[in-house]
Simulated assay, not measured.
Amino acid sequence: MPATAFSASAAASAAASAPSQARSLPPQQNVPDLDAGGEEKTVDYPPDGQRYNQPSSISIQAPPYTRITGLDLRCTGMSCPVQIAPDGRSATAQGSASTWDFLYPFTVHVVADIDAPLAGGTFTGSFTLNGVTQPLTVNIKPGIQGIIAGNLRNTSPPGGGVRVLAVDPGSNTQAAGLQPGDLIVEVAGTLTPTVNDLDNVLRGKRSGATYPVTVRRAGALVTLQIPLDPEP
């Protein structure tokens, strides 16, 4: 018999005579450690082994700085379509059977965003089954401070932007198109009149995260998408 969390019951007559009662969704079995920008991990909610005499309804809110990429309900004998929001921040599912057995785990697939806080930490969303809610908790691992890899200097006098004297060979910064002679004037929507301002914008941002960097080049403004390099 295939594994099924939502198993439509064939014993409809017996279920019809069974009294309706509140169920408790068991808490998640595992708390995954996620690498920001890394591969997806799973969270399992174990079955309670009970028969439900009402259609099923699931609603999930992803923990902060994460996205839902999949939801395995292991349905058989009934329809239970899953809908995941385009941004992955939430998901819903509905079961079509009015009587079903909760026999196998629900599995939520999650990934951590590359722009998660540098320090990482524990973050919690929610998993709700028929009005009963349990936390959906993940750990996000600490990251490495990101930088724009090159020799950067203030203009003279300071305040006109950050001059690029050289770009580190083989770096993400070089691959993204930053060039010696460019004048960095804005990063991630914030003006950078000095190196200190640039450092403040990048502080706490992870290596690997991509941000728009606007430079003045040959009298024109050019915006580059630069994945930050790891701080040495």
Score class of each variant (00 low, 15 high):
Thr76Arg: 15
Gln179Ser: 08
Asn130Gln: 10
Val43Arg: 04
Ala15Arg: 05
Gln225Ser: 14
Gly88Tyr: 03
Val195Lys: 03
Thr128Tyr: 12
Leu221Thr: 12
Leu202Ile: 03
Val222Ala: 02
Thr42Val: 04
Tyr65Ile: 08
Ile147Tyr: 06
Tyr52Thr: 13
Ile68Phe: 01
Lys205Asn: 10
Phe123Asn: 02
Cys75Thr: 06
Gly38Tyr: 08
Ala220Glu: 13
Ser207Ala: 15
Lys205Pro: 02
Gly120Tyr: 08
Gln94Val: 04
Ser156Ala: 04
Thr192Val: 15
Pro212Lys: 03
Ala14Ser: 13
Gln83Met: 10
Ala18Ile: 04
Val138Arg: 00
Asn53Ala: 13
Leu103Trp: 00
Tyr65Ser: 08
Ser17Ile: 14
Pro86Lys: 06
Ala22Ser: 15
Asn154Trp: 06
Ala97Thr: 07
Val82Gly: 07
Ser207Lys: 15
Pro193Gln: 02
Phe102Thr: 09
Asn196Gln: 14
Pro230Thr: 06
Arg206Phe: 06
Pro212Phe: 13
Met78Arg: 02
Ile148Ser: 05
Gly177His: 01
Asp101Ala: 07
Val185Leu: 05
Ile140Tyr: 02
Pro55Met: 10
Gly70His: 07
Arg67Ala: 14
Ile147Glu: 12
Ala119Phe: 00
Ala218Leu: 11
Pro158His: 14
Leu25Cys: 04
Asn200Ile: 08
Asp44Phe: 10
Tyr45Cys: 09
Val110Leu: 15
Ala188Ser: 15
Pro46Cys: 05
Ala218Ser: 14
Asn196Phe: 13
Glu186His: 06
Gln28Lys: 00
Ser9Asn: 09
Thr42Asn: 04
Leu103Phe: 01
Asn130Ala: 13
Ala62Pro: 14
Tyr104Asp: 06
Ile226Ser: 07
Ala11Gly: 05
Pro64Gln: 07
Ile148Thr: 11
Arg163Met: 03
Gln134Gly: 01
Ala16Arg: 04
Val162Pro: 01
Asp101Trp: 09
Phe102Asp: 14
Ala10Val: 07
Leu73Cys: 08
Asp72Trp: 01
Val201Ile: 00
Ser156Val: 15
Gly150Leu: 04
Phe127Met: 12
Leu73Ser: 01
Gln54Ser: 10
Asn30Asp: 11
Tyr65Asp: 12
Phe127Tyr: 14
Thr92Tyr: 03
Pro180Trp: 11
Leu221Arg: 10
Pro227Thr: 13
Ala218Met: 09
Gly181Leu: 10
Gly95Met: 00
Ala166Lys: 12
Arg203Leu: 15
Arg216Glu: 15
Pro32Leu: 07
Asp33Ile: 05
Pro169Thr: 11
Ala16Glu: 07
Gln29Pro: 00
Gly189Thr: 05
Gly170Trp: 01
Pro47Tyr: 06
Gly70Asn: 02
Ala209Lys: 03
Leu136Asp: 02
Ala11Glu: 12
Arg74Ile: 00
Thr4Phe: 08
Ile60His: 07
Ser126Pro: 13
Ser171Glu: 07
Ile114Cys: 01
Val167Trp: 03
Pro19His: 00
Lys41Cys: 00
Arg216Gly: 11
Val110Met: 03
Asn130Tyr: 12
Pro135Leu: 12
Ile184His: 03
Thr192Ala: 13
Thr210Val: 11
Gly77Gln: 09
Leu103Ser: 14
Ala8Phe: 01
Ala175Tyr: 12
Ile226Pro: 13
Pro55Trp: 05
Pro64Arg: 10
